[in-house]
């Protein structure tokens, strides 16, 4: 089991979809929300995902395929 900290940024069309719930259920991941701000037009959530590494990787790929932007919670690691 590993833990991965990520930030999800949701576009307006996905605000009402239970993406985090489905992520947990479909991929056997435990999502633990630490910070969030969701309005009717946009939303971001900082959360920790706990599970098997391959499940987390597959889960994140699924979230991205739905149209959510996924970033490492530490921000961009690459610098100039």
């Amino acid at each position: 089991m590993i833990k991965k900290q990520v930030m999800f940024t949701f576009p307006e069309k996905l605000i009402k979809e239970p993406i985090i719930f489905n992520l947990g259920r479909q991929f056997k991941i435990v999502p633990n929300i630490r910070r969030a701000d969701v309005t009717e037009s946009k939303g971001w959530v900082v959360l920790e995902l706990e599970g098997e590494e391959k499940d987390i990787d597959q889960g994140i790929a699924w979230v991205i395929s739905k149209g959510v932007r996924v970033d490492p919670v530490v921000g961009d690691i690459i610098e100039g």
Partner: peptide, 24 residues
Amino acid sequence: SLHVNPVVANTIAKSIAIGNPADG
């Protein structure tokens, strides 16, 4: 805004081409 929304960076100024700024 009170939140910095990430973007896809595209500029010749590579040293500041950071789309998701950690301390933004």
